[in-house]
């Protein structure tokens, strides 16, 4: 069972909600893999007491050229949609920084002189946090290609329930992270920015033909425009978490909503079971 936690807008409490759901499920003796796919800014580990159990490099394939056999035919440059290859003075010159690892150049080279080699773009860490299994992808600074790392992190889910903490926004990293989930939980806040960014996420998820629910965080901090939108669009709001300055202070110190207030803990335990049964309906 795969549940993705996403948000059109950053800073709505998506990570705190993901961690809280994971903790609530763990406290009900459910085995969880929490997959931190917000690889540009992975933060779930900051909200959990966890112990690192493994760390490995994440590599993407980039072309490397055997110049002695290159005839400068230009087939590689022709297939490369990303302008990584130039043909000058009858030889190919490759700029791997721009490579999207599609493999086209090595497949098309008639001399078979382009091999694919590993190039590090990030790391994958696994942690134990009680019975929660946390997997984190972290992109190297200055690298631009998040989706391959996100795909790899998703492959490392080992427990029956996988919770994915997705990157914010609605572009390709978010699409890659939510892809294949049984359903998506959109975390938003009741403000104009929150509503606007949520509608973009809704549009994206509808285009992907995915099922989703909404959680409104800091539900009493703004106005009722998110509620009205959800009603008119027939989207179910499954949780409303109220605003609390104590929760904000707790979060600043790395304490998730679940542990910030006793009433939040109860609320998450109650709703985490509902969330699991919903995922079952979609399966």
């Amino acid at each position: 069972m795969i549940i993705a936690v996403a948000s059109g807008k950053g800073g709505t409490g998506k990570t705190s909600v993901s961690v809280s759901l994971a903790k609530a499920l763990a406290d009900s003796n459910k085995k969880i893999s929490l997959l931190d796919c917000d690889v540009e800014e992975p933060n779930a580990h900051l909200l959990l007491e966890c112990r690192e159990i493994s760390r490995s490099e994440f590599n993407v394939k980039i072309p490397s050229l055997d110049l002695s056999r290159c005839t400068g035919c230009g087939k590689c440059a022709e297939i490369c949609e990303f302008n990584c290859i130039a043909i000058v003075k009858k030889r190919a010159v490759i700029f791997p920084d721009l490579c999207h690892s599609c493999g086209g150049c090595s497949l098309v080279c008639p001399e078979k002189c382009i091999k694919e080699t590993d190039s590090k773009t990030g790391e994958i860490l696994e942690y134990n946090a009680g019975i929660i299994h946390l997997v984190q992808g972290i992109l190297d600074i200055g690298k631009a290609m998040a989706p391959p790392l996100i795909r790899e992190v998703k492959k490392l889910a080992r427990e029956e329930i996988a919770l994915i903490d997705c990157p914010p926004g609605t572009s390709c990293p978010m699409v890659t992270a939510v892809g294949g989930a049984d359903y998506v939980i959109l975390v938003t806040e009741p403000t104009p920015f929150g509503l606007h960014d949520m509608t973009l996420a809704v549009e994206t998820l509808r285009k992907m033909k995915m099922n989703f629910y909404v959680i409104i965080n800091r539900a009493d901090s703004g106005d009722d425009r998110v509620e009205k939108y959800c009603t008119s669009e027939n989207i179910e709001v499954i949780m409303r978490i109220k605003e609390s300055i104590d929760a904000a202070r707790a979060y600043s110190k790395g304490i998730p909503l679940y542990d910030a207030l006793p009433e939040f803990k109860q609320y998450f335990i109650l709703n985490s079971n509902k969330i699991i049964s919903r995922a079952g309906e979609f399966k």
Partner: peptide
């Protein structure tokens, strides 16, 4: 799937 396509053109070529 439109949202997953990277636009690399490998499938087109082969």
């Amino acid at each position: 799937e439109e949202t997953s396509c990277e636009g690399c053109g490998v499938c087109v070529h082969f």
